[in-house]
Amino acid sequence: MVNGVVIVVHSNDIIRKGLASIIRTIAGIRVVEHTSFAGLDFSANDILGYLLEPNMLNDFRKLGGICAKSKPKGIIIYNGSKIDGIDLPFIETSFSSERIIEFVKNILSNSRSVPDNQDNELSSREIDVLKCVALGMSNKEIADRLFISIHTVITHRKNITAKLGIKSTSGLTIYAIMEGYIEPSSIDIRG
């Protein structure tokens, strides 16, 4: 079954609290409520999906909610009824609690992630991390060098691997040289 966080973002208290209390009954799912995107960390890696108000969708895309970083399994829109032109699952007002639970479970247990519209280009921070990895630094050393936590380093590494499809340190090193991020002379390629 699924495990992780579902983020419910809705400005209307009654709707948000109502949806949250229904989804909370699903085993393994934690629900976090927000009235807006302020203060929301899209890159947290246990995010399973989002439940949004329809007019928030543009901001959501702009803020990087759908990106390789977070790879949510599902984005669901709450609205009185389905809106044409938005190709995402909708929860409608007429749905019963049982139907909402089934609906959410179904979407979140789907192993396919939401396809991201962005390409797999590395962010500048990811490139910083990649360079350090290629130079043979440990996670701890990378964290110290870039003033970030080890947890963040690990998250970046996961995202780099997801984007590039390269898992091993030596593979990442070769990639970093091929793409000109580091000089061939600066490393010992084994690792």
């Binding site: 590039l164 499809g165 091993s168 030596s170 593979g171 091929m178």
Partner: peptide, 17 residues
């Protein structure tokens, strides 16, 4: 696991870059 992971990295590097 590590051994076949590296082979898959090798394939990826060749195919993409």
């Amino acid at each position: 696991t590590d051994l076949d992971e590296k082979l898959s990295d090798l394939r990826n590097l060749i195919i993409k870059y």
